[in-house]
Write a protein that binds this DNA or RNA. Structure first.
Lengths: 385, 385
DNA sequence: CCTTTGCTGGAAAGCGTTTTCTATCTGGCA
DNA sequence: TGCCAGATAGAAAACGCTTTCCAGCAAAGG
């Protein structure tokens, strides 16, 4: 079939033969702890270079019963959120001399389970689950069935932003607190009427961010009009469609909260397409702080998450030996007020919030972190439960 | 060290023993072509499920002397360009049932070579090089030294957007033609004075895009003022800095071409920061058509590349058996005129281009493909050299 | 000068699969 | 009824490496 004549791979035996030593010695030279006579060592090294020898990683993994590989599973590597976290993971992997097997599930739960199984087969040192889990009983069970034997055999699993049901070591963005903080910030701006663009309700991230947002509103005595909560896909187009639907229903809100920045980007386009100015006519806020949104016009208010840091952190977590109790590192979000949010236009005021314009004097681009426990230098808090 | 008692991995022998058959039979049941007596088959399947058996992929790879893995090397997975291509690769990999080992070089040539070596060790079926190569003699030699024995042993290597020196199967965006087409489009708008924000001159992409751009200008009798060519990193901040430097030098150009969209994003911020309106004061164009730029204000004119398609295509290429001559699939770019480019403001006119405003009547958002061979349905042309 | 200790190199036993190869057993046909 | 072909299960070799276990040798000590 293949007319190109294939030379056989050069093996350690070839190197050993060429250097006139035993395979054992060759192995020791190449990665051994024990001493080898200098001249033999020389010969082996020379032979290896000469033959362009590369050890068969599979054979090594088999013989050593351990691998230098970690698995990473995300929903969509094309999404800036995951790309950002993945960048952190790649950086950490490079530092640790680890290889990364990447899985992109395209948001298919079955594919996620399949990836775990596959990585289990690869005997990866650790599996990193990036992104929200699914609120799905069958899925959770399937995952558990894969994960249990893996961890029992010494495998490590760590997650970013996961539901607690799987009891994994987790780097947990404070989605709930972040949603609440954002709501408080918007309330402080004077908004009283909100709309939310949500994602698939099966995702824990959706549930948490929305809940936090609603909590804070409730504390202010405000309930979210169910008609003002529109679901869309966690994509730019999903945001666009959700915002369009919102407008179709007749938007009364003065502030729209898109559960992710990616959705917010689409929403911005939709709002603008309908002749609404942001923030003059309506404020818009997102969540995640993906790199691009500071360069939009207007720059988007959001809840900042240190994406790359999340990736590094989850890797570090996975590399620590397992502990009997699952660890959780909470990473707090930070509301970043940019120009996409402003006090509501006077015509929306209900009279209960006089002088709101004054609040608008809060400088834009400034960090606003109400009610969030944040350390002086890093916004991370460790909790062992 | 690890106080968690580790159960040993369950092996095929365990399954066989539990099913009271030979390992050979168990293997045949699990993935064999030959027939096995139904009751034995049942027992094996039951045992495997019972024990949560997962075959050791390393042992399989060793025994089968082949792996189900491909390697992908890109500069920075956090960059929207690579993330987009990687998404296509992941999709294709999923379709083919292949696993992906990802390498992110962070633009370090040495790391790239190291990744190839590592993937060679993993005996990946194919290595996909995404992104520009380096114009560096030592690097090229090192790469060749890694690639030659790999391909000699039947490994496949394919690249997106590479220099031809390595003689790889390549999916080649028409960087040169794209640069030229963009120049032509800008000339048609009436621009006569240009500036270019380039990236590291070691990258072939930089060389090609710039050359194409200059070619087209030369044809129109225009030479690029060397002071109007500013180098920056291929990142948002690189674009920002390069544009800032350009402004510091005193920008006379009416049109700025950033060699990548990512740089253009930074440039846009810099221009705006200096009080310049785009496109009223200066036009701005990029290259790649990463997803976000259509949502910027103004939406960015660019040369569209089908990123995800690039990824799928390079995978397909790598999966085809090698041919004696290296294949090249050229993918033409497509100039997308959006609102970031407009005819130059009258004050910049040199009097030689009267009536330029009329040209501005060309509707925005429209596709403009001068002098590019594009098929009716896909903008791809196959060339075997 | 002989024995013991300490190194170092080689032989060989795995690591967990797949895949010949061989043996056995069944059924079919003469 | 006897023999052969066909099919199927098991034994064993192989995949390429690491690592224990030995053996041999040199140096050191008695």
């Amino acid at each position: 079939m293949n007319n190109v004549s294939e030379q056989p791979q050069v093996t350690l035996d070839d190197v050993a033969r060429s250097a006139q030593v035993s395979p054992a010695t060759a192995s020791r030279v190449l990665n051994g702890a024990t001493k080898v006579r200098p001249d033999l060592r020389e010969r082996v090294l020379a032979a290896a270079a000469e033959l362009a020898y590369t050890p068969n990683a599979h054979a090594q993994a088999l013989a050593r019963a351990s691998s230098q590989t970690v698995g990473v599973i995300c929903h969509d590597i094309g999404d800036p959120y995951f790309a950002g976290v993945a960048r952190g993971v790649m950086r950490a992997a490079a530092d640790e001399g680890l290889n990364v097997i990447l899985g992109s599930t395209f948001r298919d739960p079955d594919r996620e389970v399949a990836y775990v199984s596959m990585m289990r087969g690869q005997r990866v040192r650790a599996i990193l689950l990036i992104g929200s889990g699914f609120e799905d009983r069958a899925w959770r069970q399937a995952m558990r069935r894969e994960i249990a034997p893996y961890t029992a055999a010494g495998g490590r699993v760590a997650a970013v932003s996961r539901h607690q049901d799987l009891r994994l070591d987790t780097v947990l963005p404070e989605n709930r607190a972040g949603g609440a903080a954002l709501a408080e910030a918007m309330l402080a701006l004077g908004h009283r009427d909100f709309a939310v663009l949500t994602g698939p309700p099966r995702l824990t991230t959706v549930v948490d961010r929305l809940a936090g947002f609603q909590d804070a509103l409730a504390k202010a005595g405000i309930t979210l009009d169910p008609g003002h909560v529109v679901e869309g896909a966690f994509t730019r187009d999903g945001g666009f469609e959700a915002a369009t639907e919102l407008l179709r229903r007749g938007l009364r809100a003065t502030c729209v909260f898109a559960l992710t920045d990616v959705m917010a980007v689409g929403a911005l386009a939709a709002l603008r397409g309908h002749g609404l100015a942001v923030p003059a006519d309506v404020s818009l806020a997102g969540f995640d702080d993906i790199p691009i949104i500071a360069d939009l016009t207007p720059p988007l208010t959001t809840v900042h998450l240190p994406l790359e840091e999340l990736g590094k952190r989850v890797m570090a977590m996975a590399l620590r030996p397992a502990s009997p109790r699952s660890r959780v590192e909470r990473v707090s979000g930070e509301v970043i007020l940019r120009e996409s949010t402003a006090p509501p236009a006077p015509r929306f005021h209900d009279g209960l919030v006089p002088g709101v314009r004054a609040v608008g004097a809060v400088p834009l681009h400034e960090t606003y972190t109400p009610a969030l426990p944040a350390g002086p230098h890093e916004n991370v808090e460790r909790i062992f439960e």
